[in-house]
Design a protein around this nucleic acid. Structure first.
Lengths: 252, 252
DNA sequence: TAGTGGTCTAGACCACCAC
DNA sequence: TGGTGGTCTAGACCACTAC
């Protein structure tokens, strides 16, 4: 039960331990759903118990584990499938985790002059453009999520030729690493807004022809911020028909 | 700028500091939206910096503050209005915070024999009953949230006469303190599920007669667990028409 | 009683930012 | 350069659970 991997100083020790533990949990290490004790983990990873505890705190708010005082730390089995409302999530992986064959279709990608609304949201001058990408995620070939991303030009300017940028694989899969690796602007947090809609009231009805126009649609609009708290992306996601679970854990 | 209140050992120091800071923030103390530095707070409250940091961590995930390395800790102004998807929330207060006059109408309250579904969810034997409460929250007199609570009898048995229990003010307002104070079973966490629906497909259409039957409805079903991870309440909330913001902050 | 998680401390060093 | 938040340590004591 020893961990071969011991964190090195490059990114923070905490985030390395976090990654390792998440991987271990997903791979089904840890028999009986019980993690080693905090003392043991601290010893195995050669870090202090405080560090281990901060990692376990993260795992707890993510809903991956629960802890019982005097007993131990356990894997929350029901939540092996990630709950996208609690964490940054890659839809491609999420669809696969839900047992479907994921697919992606890029509908459009263009540099446009934003309207006033968008300009204000991103604090843009009137001559600055934004990249607008529309795409469709598929599950077993069926459209399941319609998604629209808006990214101000300054975020990626100079790093891509227009050609590279508009290619379907420029951003996805790996939305998050696009910002981190390619733009050197990792996302720090999202502010999201959740609401309900009806398919017939939405402008892209035609993409979901196979669905009843009265299908309810869960709409999540998110604004992503970089380390300096500057908004660098807006993402609006439409989930018709409640085909996926949106779980959420709130800890008092 | 000194804090008159210094935490005493009764509940945890952390949660006392948390309460005080939340109160200070809501009251608009802290000029310029900047909190004192962590060292200063530690000194004012006479606790260690680690304790202060764990409190600030909580405030950050609640979306109440943000931190800038090398600069300071600031109040997130946009989020003075609480985001109920991130924290335990009292709808009564939430409605008031959104600028409406809150109201509450209890539609029914009865002890019933649960169906199989509920029995399984709460691990109940077939002779155990549950309290089922239906209520309507009002904003300026208009119904705005329809809510159904289910609580197994063992949670409160022996603590109330049937008469007390079925009174409209037995549970609300102060849903959370009902469990903490009256049942001695504070809620530790909720697992929620978020989905979209359409008013016309729901069985209580008649309560929202003034609304278009095609109004979209945000549905949040939650199961609340006590300190021993035993489910003690189910709450299903229907929010027609997106009249309130459901904000959410996710931190990477 | 032994072992677990929960809380808290005191102190160190780093990374970042403004001046 | 000084002050801020970010990370990490080592150790203490408490509260709870199981045996």
């Amino acid at each position: 039960m020893a961990n071969k991997r011991i964190p090195q100083r490059q990114s923070s020790i905490t985030s390395q331990v976090l990654d390792i533990l998440i991987e271990n949990i997903r791979e089904g290490a840890y028999e009986e759903e019980a993690l080693p004790s905090e003392y043991q983990l601290a010893h195995e990873f050669e870090v202090s118990r405080a560090t281990i505890r901060s990692v376990l705190d993260r795992l707890e708010t993510l809903g991956l584990i629960y802890r019982r005082q005097g007993v131990g730390t356990f894997i929350r089995k029901s939540s092996q499938i990630s709950n996208p409302l609690n964490q940054f999530v890659n839809f491609y992986d999420l669809i696969r985790d839900n047992g479907f064959e994921p697919g992606l279709e890029q509908l459009s990608a263009e540099l446009v002059n934003p309207d006033m609304d968008i300009r204000e949201r991103f604090h843009l001058e009137s001559d600055q453009r934004v990249l607008e990408v529309q795409k469709l995620f598929l599950a077993n070939g069926d459209p399941i999520i319609y998604c629209k991303n808006i990214i101000p030009e300054w975020v990626f300017s100079g790093k891509f030729t227009p050609d590279e940028l508009l290619r379907p694989d420029a951003i996805e899969p790996g939305f998050l690493s696009f910002f981190e690796k390619k733009c050197q602007q990792p996302l720090k947090y999202f502010i999201s807004d959740v609401r309900a809609e009806i398919l017939i009231r939405l402008p892209f009805l035609n993409m979901f022809k196979h669905l009843d126009p009265l299908t309810p649609v869960l709409v999540i609009s998110e604004i992503g911020f970089n380390q300096q708290d500057v908004p660098i992306v807006e993402s609006i996601e439409y989930h018709p028909g409640n085909r996926m679970d949106f779980k959420l854990i709130r800890i008092g």
